[in-house]
Design a protein around this nucleic acid. Sequence first.
DNA 1: ACCTTTGTTAAGGC
DNA 2: TGCCTTAACAAAGG
Length: 278
Amino acid sequence: MPELPEVETIKRSLLPLLVGKKIINVDIKVPNLLKYPLADKEHFEEVLKGSTFLDIQRRGKYLLFHLNKGWILVIHLRMTGRLLYTPKDQTIEKHTHVIFSLDDGNDLRFHDIRKFGLIYLVPQDGLHLLKGLSGLGPEPLSDDFSLDSFKLALKNKKQKIKPLLLNQNFIAGIGNIYADEILFQAKVHPEEIISNLGEDKIEKIYDAIRDRLTKGIEFRGTSIKDYVDGLGQSGMFQNELKIYGKKGELCLNCGHVFERINVGGRSSTICPWCQKKN
DNA sequence: ACCTTTGTTAAGGC
DNA sequence: TGCCTTAACAAAGG
Ligand SMILES: [Zn+2]
């Protein structure tokens, strides 16, 4: 489940390997992954073949591959997507759906067990065509995301806190793993109604967002089931998790047993003692 | 054969 | 109408 820290780690691992490399061939085995604006296999092949990578950016959970000739390849990995820089002679693993052959003897392979990933190809000035991308909220680790702006954005809201943290239009890049870790660190119940949160709790949530995401990047992401970086290497943040997926284990703060509840249709693990509702 | 997983969005409700 | 919740969908592994 690549969230902000995982996607950022993939970006950092691929950047030095891809910039300046030219795509000499594209093999699209599963055209369904190609999406709007023009979900057409031949179109993708025609544009991508002969294009060179200029830069890679991350926005939320999206990866933006800037190509010469004025196009941007946009990829979202959703649940199980992987982008793997692989020697071209290496055996092609099951669930490899797109292969970009590079002029350095390697491939960039898109691998996705669930096939939920999304691949877009837009003109340089056409990013606004991608609704999910252009509607994203602030980057939580950028200066745009200040404590004051966070407080302002939460003002008068009457919904539960966790679904809002997962709302990409409100704040970009947080998924279920980091949301649980953030709320546990801030000692806030995921179903807490935002208007019931005091200033101190809002500050704690703000600090926890910055802290957990930063640490997630430092530890090169969370590898629980599927996630690996662009070189196939696992991260280490799974060893730092304090609550996600730990139903039945003991809280290290208070000794109570972690419970699993459903919030907004998503499973959530909580400490019933540390994360009480107001 | 059913249940779980999650990100995103369309549809529904108040 | 605006704010918020719910459910559906994608696909395959356990
Ligand atoms: Zn506790």
